[in-house]
Simulated assay, not measured.
Amino acid sequence: MNRDPVTSSNVTSVGYDPDSGTLEVEFHNGSIYQYFDVPEALYNGLIHADSVGGFLAAHVKGTYRFSRV
């Protein structure tokens, strides 16, 4: 999946596959996680958030199924 760089103290890049609703997040420590069944509107909110890490923590983590890649 292609990811776009983001400005964040914790997140390096973010990608999204609208066909499967998969959100992929790469962290500065090199780990990559995929979150499943994420609505596209939520992805748009994430990439436009003032704090990408804060948005991820508040709206994605603990809400959507995930897998470490």
Rank of each mutant, 00 (worst) to 15 (best):
E26M: 06
S9K: 11
S8C: 04
H59I: 00
D37Q: 14
P18M: 03
G45V: 04
Y64A: 09
V25R: 06
D17Y: 05
H59P: 00
D4C: 04
G54Q: 07
S9Y: 03
E26H: 08
G45W: 04
R68V: 11
Y43E: 00
T12Y: 01
T63R: 15
R65Y: 06
N44H: 11
L23Y: 07
P39A: 04
I47K: 15
S20M: 02
F36E: 02
S20Q: 06
E40M: 10
P39Y: 06
I47P: 02
E26P: 04
V14R: 03
V60Y: 06
Y64G: 08
D37I: 07
V6E: 02
S31D: 10
N2S: 13
L42F: 00
G62Q: 11
V11R: 03
H48N: 15
D37P: 02
R68C: 12
V60L: 10
E40N: 10
D50N: 14
T22R: 13
Y33V: 02
V6S: 05
H28E: 03
V25W: 01
Q34A: 13
V11W: 00
P39T: 08
D19I: 05
V60R: 11
P18N: 09
M1Y: 05
V69C: 01
E24S: 14
Y35S: 07
L56M: 12
N44W: 05
P18S: 14
G15M: 06
F36H: 15
F55N: 02
N44A: 12
H59K: 14
V52R: 07
T7E: 08
N2E: 14
Q34W: 02
G54H: 03
H48E: 13
L46Y: 05
T7Y: 11
E24W: 02
D19S: 15
H48G: 15
Y33I: 02
S8T: 03
P39M: 07
P5H: 07
V52M: 00
G53E: 07
T22P: 01
H28T: 05
L46H: 08
H28L: 09
V38Y: 01
G30E: 08
E40R: 14
Y16S: 08
K61T: 10
R3Y: 01
S31K: 14
F27S: 02
N10Y: 12
T22F: 02
V25T: 05
L42N: 03
P5K: 15
S31W: 06
I32Q: 11
D37W: 01
